[in-house]
Each structure stands twice: as C-alpha cells, then as structure tokens.
Design a protein around this nucleic acid. Structure first.
Lengths: 315, 315
DNA sequence: GAGCTTCATAGCAATTTGCTATATTATACA
DNA sequence: TGTATAATATAGCAAATTGCTATGAAGCTC
C-alpha cells in the first residue's frame, strides 16, 4: 500500500513533538491540517496510530514504527532543502574553471583562495588548457568557465568578458645585468638564454614573434616545458629571460624577485578574459565565482597602473 | 526553501532509471505527470536539474545531489509501505499476551511456537499475572490479551471468549501408589505431601478448597512457589500430589510422566478463555493470534475428550 | 533527412491542501 | 462532581496540486 510521504512526515513530527499542536508548529502548519492528515492516515490504513481517548497523545506500536520511517524522510527533506538553499544562493556547488597554466597558477589560484574565504562550500575544479581546447571543453560542458587570452572568437555561442589587457613583458630576476643598462634597445636580450613557455601555449608563439622581431637567428633556449613555479625558480637563479604576461610578473614581483625589463614588447591584439557559453543558465556558484574574478581583476588592473606610474617616476 | 518530498522522489526515480519514461514507470505514474513535476521543480528552484538538449538525459550536479536525498526518501517510503502491508494483514506487529503461569507455560508457549511457524514476524511479548491484575493490565493497555480462568467479570468494558472448561484435577506421577487402588474415595490424598501452586494463584485457592472438602486439617505442603517446570520435575520424582488444570496435565502427560488421579474434583464455576477490551479495535496481529489460540483450543478440547474416553475404556 | 523514441505541453476532472471558525473531549483542579 | 483549560477533531471553502489523455516538439539512429 502506497502511503503519502508527507503524511508520514507529519506523523513523525507529531510523535516527536509529543502532540498535534506542537508537531504542526514544528512543520509550520496549523493544527487542523495535521489533525486531518492523521485521521486520513488512520482511515486508510484501517489501523489506529494513536491510543484513543488518552490525552498525552500516545502512539500505537504501529504508529511509532511508521513514524520512524517518516522521521527518516523528514531528515532527508531537511537536508535537501538546505542543499537547495545553498545552491540557490551560490553558497554551495561546483565551479569548473580552466585556463592557461601560467595565468591560473600566478593569479587565479590566489583569487580562488580569496573566493573560498567568502564561500567555503563551493568546490572549485581547476584544469589547464589552451584556446581551441578550452572552447571545446566549455561546449562539451566539461568546464563552466575558461580564463584565457582570446583574440578571435569563432562561433557566436560563446560569451567573452574581458578582464585585463593581454600584455606581455620580458621577465628576469631583479639582479639581472640588463636592468643596469641606461637605454635598452631590444636586441641585447638575444645575448641571454631564454626559457621557453609551455609548448603550444600562446606565450610560446608570442615569444617566437618577439625574438624574430629582434632579428633572432639562434637564441639559446636551454629550458623548456616547466610550469610557472619551475620557470620562476629558474629565472631567479640565472640571468635567463622569458616572456610572461604582465600580470604574472606583477603577481610574482615580491615572492620570486622577478621583474620586467623596461622594454616595449609588441603584444598581439588580445585581451585576457572570462569565456563562457552564451545565454546558457549557469549556477549561482559559477556566477558568483565569475563576478569575483572580474572584480578582483578590476582591482588588480588598478594596482598595476599605479605600480607602473611609480616605476616611471623612478626611471 | 521547502521542497515537496514527492517531487524529490520522482527526481530520484528518473535519474536512477535513466529517463523520464522509465522513472515514471518505476513509480507507477505516467510520463507527463513526472515530466511536469520536474519542470515545476526546476522552475521553483531556478536551477536546471538536467542538462538541456541532450538525449540520454544527463542530470546537473545539483540535480544529482538533490536526487540523492530523494532516493533516501524513496527507500524510506518503500519500507513504510511494506511495514503497513505487513501490519494490515497481521503478518507483523506485536502481541502482548498475559496469563496465569501454569497455563501459559504448559499450553500457550507451545501455541505461540505454532503461531510463529505461520507468522514469524509477529513479536509476542508474554507476561504473567492473575485475574484482577490482568484486567488492569488490559485496561491500561499494557497487554492486548489475557488468557486466564474467569468466574465473574466486573465491569462491562471487557470481552471474554471461553475456550476451555476450567476443570482441575489432582496430578501425580504415573507410578503413584494411589493409581493402583481400586476405588478412590478422596481422603486418601491427604496422606501424601502436596505441592502448593504459586501464591495468590486461583489454583492455590482451588487447592485449599479441595483439601478442605476432604476434611483436611494439617496436610503436609513441603514445596511452594515453583513454576510449572519445577512442579512437574518435583512431581515426577516423588509421590507428592498437586492440583493442576486438566489441560496442563494433559499437555504434560508424555514429557513429565504425569497423570491425573481418577477423582472427581469440585471445580469452581469457571471457564478458561481469552480476555480483551470490548469494542476496542485491535491490530490484525492480535486478532490472528487470538484466533489461533481459540481454534487450537478447539482441537485440544477434542483431543482431551477422546483421551478421556479411552481412559474410561481402560478403567 | 526519414523514422523512431523520448520528452514537453495543453486541457480537464478529481483530489488534496491549506486556512479559519467552531465543536468536542480529556485532564486538572477546586 | 463539576468546571475551567487545553488539546484535538470537524466543517466549510478557496487555491493548489495531481492524475489522466491527447498531442506537439526535439534528439538520436541509420
């Protein structure tokens, strides 16, 4: 015999609370509503659920046994409600974010940490990738957001929110000899070894273009394939150079004793931003995360601007 | 946010079954009904529960998380339904039965065993007591049925169903010397020691009356207070006598080498039967148990009758 | 792109749900 | 023993929900 789950929950509440009135209150209902439910249940079951004619309402063994199951459902229901609330307000859920390695490692990981101070119950699943793949990942719903440099967007199913100018710089350690030179032309950088960014990354292409612009023929590239942490470590211990997004160098200016050469680098027509499926409804957690990234980068851009001005002053 | 438990159950069924159609079938509903529920849920939650536009219906993480709770409720609901069915058909539940010690031990315990061969899931809670207390226990709903001898019923709130004539006999071991005597008058029994039935039991009163009718002044009563098992053991090892319900002696005629003296014993106007609250609805399990006892005693009475006839023939 | 399967929507009758107002009943206390 | 009090049961009504059948729309398979 099929029983209405809500009825069993009401039964459980009444037995738990020790009375119809209290049970109803527990559920946010009125006493008559619950009372009727119990009467209906008894009638359908053909079994008394309570000992009749006794005022401190006493359940029959049957009533108690049924109520046990009702209690289980009540707990599940409560948990489900809580889950729904958390989800709806973006306090819980999962954000799947992907992006280019260096950028994720240098900047996004820190922002995720900040985000978790606000919303500790949102799970962030991070992955790495470059542009065509990222777009595919989003379309295939393997990823909610991508944070990456974008020049041309193929297809109009994507939405791109620019958050930072896609500017590259030549990075080196703060004790690098080139920093002492009065006037840096450019070709001098070819005299130093270069670290190559991850294969197939946009940075790698940018580096190639840069070196070519200085007339490179056979620059020394002794170190390839390391992640950001490796590159930074290497950079701080040698006079090697590499190309990095400006923001990355800025983020590491303290911890890695890294800086940028005062050198105009031809950077591609490209902006860094958040890529997502256009018009697709996204969970509040994703929205919240996305907003957090955007506003954080707004502040970061401000910081970078001020920092550059101070550097100019110094120079 | 409060969610309808039934909605979550439907969600769980759909996700479990892998489709709306299958899920609906699982619940014994039509596909449109379930489909509408899901649409409603999504609308209220403001969150998609399924990835849109994908045919092997794929739930979102949120949908899956909610469905987990729904699944828990579905299981509880199933268990509750099963419980209700068992209860309704008397296949489960509890029967609280009380009665006089000797009678319960000699006869009812065996019948309970028979009963459990039919309905193993009915719990029987047995307790002992004598008449005024038994009635109180029933009124106070501490006991569903009492099986006991009743002479006068005070109060009309009780219902008594007679199942056996309340006949007592003088019991002894099968090798007792008195069994050899050609004609037993009665007073001879005063020459042997007597075992006294439990204090305050109706049997004790009966024994007193019996002995007085034979002119007892100072009969030897060396053993008092034992339960049935003790009395039977004692009886089979000595020439002591005692008073026992006829049915009890009959039940133990094999195992205890016990029999009854061919002596007319004045027995009170009393019948053995089942006592219960009049007009009170009782659980199917109790009804089934009660019926079992009544029919079993019908057979027992038949057996006893035949046994007595054969004994008469022998004599 | 045709055909098949599955999901979504529309419309309707019956049930259920919630409420307020009120009657009934059990207990407690004089 | 009666009365006061608190709790439960019942009545009546509007709104929401549930179930159904019929049918439209959309993915998937070949």
């Amino acid at each position: 015999m099929k029983l209405d789950e809500r009825h069993l929950i009401q039964l459980a509440a009444v037995i738990n609370a020790g009375g119809v009135t209290e049970g109803a209150e527990l559920l946010g209902m009125t006493q008559p509503a619950v009372s009727r439910t119990l009467a209906l249940l008894e009638k359908r079951l053909g079994e008394p659920l309570f000992v009749k004619g006794r005022r401190p309402l006493r359940p029959t063994p049957f009533g108690r046994a049924l109520a046990d199951h009702g209690q289980a459902m009540l707990l599940s229901s409560r948990k489900a409600s809580e889950l729904a609330d958390n989800f709806r307000y973006g306090r819980a859920g999962t954000v799947r974010v992907a992006g280019t390695q260096f950028f994720m490692d240098a900047l996004i990981s820190g922002l995720i940490a900040d985000f978790h101070n606000e919303r500790p119950d949102v799970r962030v699943v991070q992955s790495y990738g470059y542009m065509p793949d990222l777009q595919d990942a989003i379309r295939a719903d393997r990823v909610d957001l991508a944070i990456c440099p974008v020049d041309v967007l193929d297809g109009d199913d994507m939405e791109f929110q620019s958050i930072l100018a896609g500017r590259n710089v030549v990075a080196c350690r703060v004790t690098h000899p080139l920093l002492l030179k009065r006037k840096l032309k450019g070709p001098e950088v070819l005299d130093y070894p270069w670290i190559a960014p991850p294969p197939n990354s946009p940075l790698q292409a940018d580096m190639r273009a840069l070196l070519l612009s200085f007339g490179s023929t056979g620059v020394s590239v002794p170190y390839i394939g390391g992640s950001l942490a490796s590159a930074i470590n290497y950079l701080t211990r040698t006079d090697a150079l590499t190309i990095l997004p400006h923001g990355v160098v800025f983020a590491y200016r303290k911890v890695g004793d890294i800086t940028a050469l005062p050198l105009r680098v031809p950077h591609p027509q490209r902006a860094l931003g958040i890529l997502r499926l256009a018009g697709s409804p996204q969970s509040p957690a994703v929205t919240a995360f996305s907003n957090h990234i955007a506003t954080s980068f707004g502040k970061l851009a401000e910081l970078i601007k001020r920092h550059e001005q101070s550097v100019v002053w110094k120079g």
